[in-house]
């Protein structure tokens, strides 16, 4: 029964979502919306599991004085401060939670995002090294597209934008669409395996 009930739920929910895509009539349209709301409710309550996991792991690290336990203290203090300030005084402008969110979390996130500029440079350097015929082709295409996007490219040759746009509109779009079609077929096949219960690994029932 431990595996049968989840399989039945998966089958019913999966078939309903497929039917609602083709049948706009009620009750299917409302049912699919209902399923989405249920998922949100479950996911929200599952946050308790996540927070519990964080507390368990970091309390253990502190109690056993494992390397880096000081960071665990800061993490738990941050978790408690944010949760208490949000639950106690709300999240609207002017509250402690609002201040922490805009002056701590957002700048930290932006800092991580900004690292992308350096990572793109190092990755591009490796990708564009002309060691093989394919890499050389990639390098040539990248240079043309880059020059087509900056004023100096047009200054060097006024047809760079035309060639760059052609690369983006035709070979690039064709490649992207080929991948998308493959993904769509893969999604249908994988969904069918899951809905019919052939694939059960994701619910801890591999064999």
């Amino acid at each position: 029964m431990r595996h049968q009930i989840p399989l039945i739920i998966t089958f019913v929910a999966g078939i309903t979502m497929i039917v609602q895509y083709f049948v706009p009539h009620e009750p299917f349209a409302a049912l699919s919306q209902q399923f989405r709301i249920w998922f949100l409710i479950i996911a929200t309550f599952a946050m308790i599991l996540g927070v519990g996991n964080i507390i368990k792991i970091h309390v253990e690290r502190i109690s056993r004085a494992r390397p880096g336990w000081g960071y665990s203290v800061i993490l738990l203090a941050g978790l408690a401060t944010t949760a208490i300030s949000g639950i106690g005084w709300g999240i609207q402008p002017g509250t402690i939670f609002f201040y922490l969110f805009w002056n701590l979390l957002i700048p930290l996130g932006s800092t991580m995002f900004a690292l992308l500029a350096f990572f793109i440079t190092s990755a591009a350097y490796r990708a564009f090294r002309a060691r093989t015929a394919e890499a050389t082709l990639l390098l040539a295409a990248a240079i043309i597209v880059m020059l087509s996007r900056v004023p100096v490219g047009t200054y060097l040759w006024d047809r760079f934008p035309i060639v760059g746009n052609w690369i983006m509109d035709y070979p690039n779009t064709a490649g992207q669409r080929a991948i998308m079609i493959g993904i769509a077929l893969g999604v249908v096949s994988a969904s069918l395996r899951i809905i019919l219960g052939i694939e059960r690994t994701y619910m801890g029932a591999g064999k």
């Binding site: 479950i42 599952a46 946050m47 308790i48 996540g50 927070v51 690994t201 994701y202 619910m203 801890g204």
Partner: peptide, 10 residues
């Protein structure tokens, strides 16, 4: 959190 639970079971 749900992914963590599913991953643990798997």
């Amino acid at each position: 959190s749900l992914v963590m639970t599913a991953a643990q079971e798997t």
